[in-house]
Amino acid sequence: MADQPLRTTPQDDTPRPVPYRGGGFAPRRMPLVTGLFFALLFGLWALGSARGWIGPLTLPPPGDVLAALARLIETGDLWRHLSASLMRLGLGWALGAALGVAVGLMVGLFSLARATGLPLVTALFPIPKIALLPLFIIWFGIGEPSKVATIAFGVFFPTVINTAGGVAGVPRSLISMGQSFGLSSWRIATRIVLPGALPAILTGFRVSASIGIILLVAAEMIGAEYGLGALVLNAGNLMRLDLLIAGVVVLSALGLVVAFLLGLVEKRLLRWR
């Protein structure tokens, strides 16, 4: 039997819409889900307290915590504690972050700074910074300088590491291009290296801000009359769990506000991404 020719069917040239799948895991803001999640946690807390599943010595009812928070606001104690903490956190974080960015840029750009500074930072970074608070008290006294120094010291190291990592991630082809066009080292550092390392630097700011709040509370528990750490410590000594949890709520709100402000800064500075 002779070979039969293959039958072919005409191809369908009708254009078909192709679904777009290039979202790239872009984050979406879901404030409703966030609000519902916190409302669910609050409801479970209230339900557990009302049914007796959560004892008052374990976690006071949310109504008692809100009442304690209202008394802090009414008497003005909240502002006295919060203003003292904000001053210490602002000074310590600004000092540590500024020095961390400067040292991180030098470590990332210069071989001599990398050979000397990176091993030192790597050796000192794992040390619990709160363990050095007695040493800072001996050096700077029991007052504000020791507390600011503790916060600055803790903020310094993650900022250095993130800044140096961001500089190392800048494509060397861009730096070579700048050198080929005769740009000075200062212009290369400010126009090419710093913008390229900015995402990593801002990530370091987020991490260091959280570390700064942790060290703030620990530093204020030693020799501080006012501050959120002093408030929490005194409430714990008096077994005032409602006041203690109210202080923790204020600390959590402070962390959320700091993260929100850093998010605004990141959104403004990284519009080019």
Rank of each mutant, 00 (worst) to 15 (best):
E266T: 04
G247Q: 02
Q179R: 15
P158K: 11
F140E: 05
P145M: 14
V249C: 09
V121P: 14
T203V: 13
W53S: 12
M221H: 05
R21N: 10
I222D: 01
M106H: 13
R271Y: 11
W186M: 11
G204Y: 10
A259Y: 07
L82P: 03
I161N: 01
S83M: 08
R206D: 04
A115T: 13
A219I: 02
V257T: 07
L124A: 06
M221G: 08
Q11V: 13
L72Y: 07
I192F: 15
L86S: 07
L41C: 12
I214W: 03
I151M: 00
M221P: 10
E144P: 00
M177D: 07
L264M: 10
F260C: 10
L183D: 12
P62H: 01
P126G: 10
V33G: 01
V249G: 01
D242L: 06
M239T: 08
R80H: 12
G247T: 06
L231V: 09
G48M: 02
A26F: 07
D12I: 06
W45G: 01
P56I: 06
S176M: 14
S180N: 15
G76F: 05
W79L: 05
L183T: 03
D64W: 08
A218K: 00
V248P: 03
L231C: 07
I213Q: 04
F25A: 15
G63D: 00
M221S: 03
S146T: 03
I201E: 00
G100V: 13
F181A: 13
G166F: 09
Q179H: 14
L198K: 04
V155D: 05
G255T: 00
L47A: 05
G212W: 05
M87T: 15
M177N: 13
A113G: 08
G247S: 04
F157T: 06
L133S: 01
P171N: 12
G182C: 03
V257P: 04
V121L: 15
R172E: 06
W79G: 11
T75W: 14
F42N: 03
V170L: 14
G227C: 11
W272Q: 13
L261Y: 08
F37A: 02
V217W: 00
V257F: 06
G236S: 10
S176Q: 15
G35P: 02
G212F: 01
E144N: 12
P31H: 09
N237Q: 10
L112K: 08
L36Q: 01
G143Y: 09
G63K: 05
H81Q: 00
L36V: 11
F37K: 00
G204K: 13
V217R: 01
